[in-house]
């Protein structure tokens, strides 16, 4: 009923593109799970139950991948044959690296501020803004789809990895600060 042999976009009947309608994705995800989920096969023969388990697992993986902009970009690069070795992901953009270092320092200094939570909020908003900017760039880069633009997208993905990591560190600190109240 659903085609698991192609890519994640096809599985949900969505066009292969970076920009996607997240509402439509969520809706298609639920529709597909309603059909393939193992709970639907409580009385079915074991082979069908096994298949349901495999398919539901794949559907969850596909949904996780497409719904997160970073994972979606990585997946699209992969579909386009661009190598993304996560360990060696780097950027040569000196300005970005500088910015990144500043943000990291700012994060380290948050706890010393008079209102740490407020400073952290500000910092997280800034990181969030930078992530959004990368998403916008990725949209343009994938839209064009030329070899240079895909190479640029690979670099945007690296930058986003830096930013996402920073954001989750900030979130962890936020949790810590909130617990301490």
């Amino acid at each position: 009923m659903f085609d698991f042999s192609k890519n994640y976009f096809d599985l949900f009947g969505l066009p292969v593109a970076f920009l996607l309608d997240s509402g439509a994705l969520a809706e298609r995800y639920r529709e597909v799970q309603k059909v393939v989920h193992p709970d639907r096969y409580a009385n079915a023969p074991e082979s069908q139950q096994r298949q349901a388990l495999q398919q539901a697992t794949q559907v969850n993986e596909a949904y996780e991948t497409l719904r997160d902009p970073l994972k979606r970009a990585q997946y699209l690069l992969q579909l386009n044959g661009v190598d993304i070795n996560q360990e060696t992901a780097t950027t040569r953009d000196a300005a970005f690296l500088m910015r990144q270092m500043e943000l990291r320092e700012a994060l380290a200094q948050v706890t010393g501020q008079t209102d740490p939570l407020a400073s952290l909020d500000e910092l997280m908003a800034e990181i969030g803004g930078l992530i959004k900017a990368q998403i916008a760039q990725l949209a343009v880069q994938f839209e064009s789809g030329t070899a240079e633009q895909l190479e640029a997208a690979r670099e945007s993905v690296s930058k986003m990895q830096f930013l996402n990591k920073l954001h989750s560190e900030a979130e962890a600190l936020e949790a810590e600060l909130e617990e301490a109240i």
Partner: peptide, 15 residues
């Protein structure tokens, strides 16, 4: 009831 197979065409699904 769902897992007993009494509702093969039911709407409900838990993720």
């Amino acid at each position: 009831d769902v897992l007993a197979g009494n509702k093969p065409d039911g709407e409900m699904l838990l993720l």
